[in-house]
């Protein structure tokens, strides 16, 4: 099969810049979301009410807002409040995904930690573990097993939601595709004077599918195996 000449340059740009940025935003967001989410979720299980109320509000707030609105708030509203809160588009998108993702992880962690039977806490205390040691060495290893399937699903969601960064001009896969469409539409020598939005957006969908499908299968498999 012979591909048209324009495909090479467009594919290189979309894969080398767009896809790389997509994966970079996704990786950073996943790490941040897991770190903050697991911490907050574990804290939620402590019976100290005022703190729980604050974390609950955090979770419901960032889960309740559309991610697009969260990213708009970070990119357009924060700099209007204080100039020190000024972020690049890619960074703003990653922060938005971390806020949303950490709320999801916190809720899942709370459920996972609370699903560990009371006897496990008691046994660990009897062995002389304090609160931190008990959670770090006894409860969390068991909770993480239950957390793994939802975390893989979260990764799929984060990867897909990185596209929302396109709206503020961050050069992820969808944006790199749109820029390519615009260039190809321009008459020569810039582009071809041809519209290739169908092929390019279909290709963006295909790339996301190839990345996400094995991960959703993995999540389903883990769910069967680990729970």
């Amino acid at each position: 099969m012979n591909l048209p000449d324009w495909v090479g340059d467009v594919a290189r740009y979309m894969l080398e810049e767009g896809l790389v940025n997509t994966l970079r935003i996704a990786g950073i967001s996943l790490a941040g979301a897991v770190l903050i989410g697991v911490t907050l979720g574990t804290l939620m299980t402590i019976r100290f009410l005022p703190l729980r109320g604050v974390i609950r509000l955090y979770i419901e707030f960032w889960r309740g807002l559309p991610i697009l609105v969260t990213i708009f708030i970070i990119y357009f509203l924060l700099p209007a409040v204080s100039l020190s809160l000024r972020f690049e588009a890619l960074t703003a998108a990653a922060i938005g995904l971390i806020l949303w993702g950490s709320a999801q992880v916190a809720e899942a962690t709370r459920g996972a930690v609370q699903s560990i039977p009371r006897e496990q806490h008691e046994a660990a205390s009897a062995l002389g573990f304090g609160w931190v040691g008990r959670h770090a060495f006894v409860i969390m290893p068991q909770a993480l097993r239950r957390l793994l399937p939802p975390l893989v699903s979260l990764l799929v969601n984060i990867i897909q939601n990185t596209t929302i960064a396109q709206v503020i001009g961050a050069n992820e896969l969808l944006e790199s595709g749109e820029r390519s469409v615009e260039r190809l539409t321009a008459p020569p020598p810039i582009g071809l004077g041809e519209i290739h939005s169908f092929e390019i957006y279909a290709a963006v969908m295909a790339i996301f599918f190839v990345i996400s499908f094995p991960l959703t299968r993995l999540a389903a498999y883990l769910e069967k195996r680990l729970i």
């Binding site: 897909q160 169908f198 963006v204 969908m205 996400s212």
Partner: peptide, 22 residues
């Protein structure tokens, strides 16, 4: 599987900006 494994934003782009080409 197709819908769950592709971003909805790209689906919107495809419907609104991709389909008119065909």
């Amino acid at each position: 599987e197709v819908i769950r494994n592709t971003p909805i934003l790209v689906q919107i782009f495809f419907l609104f900006y991709g389909l008119p080409q065909i």
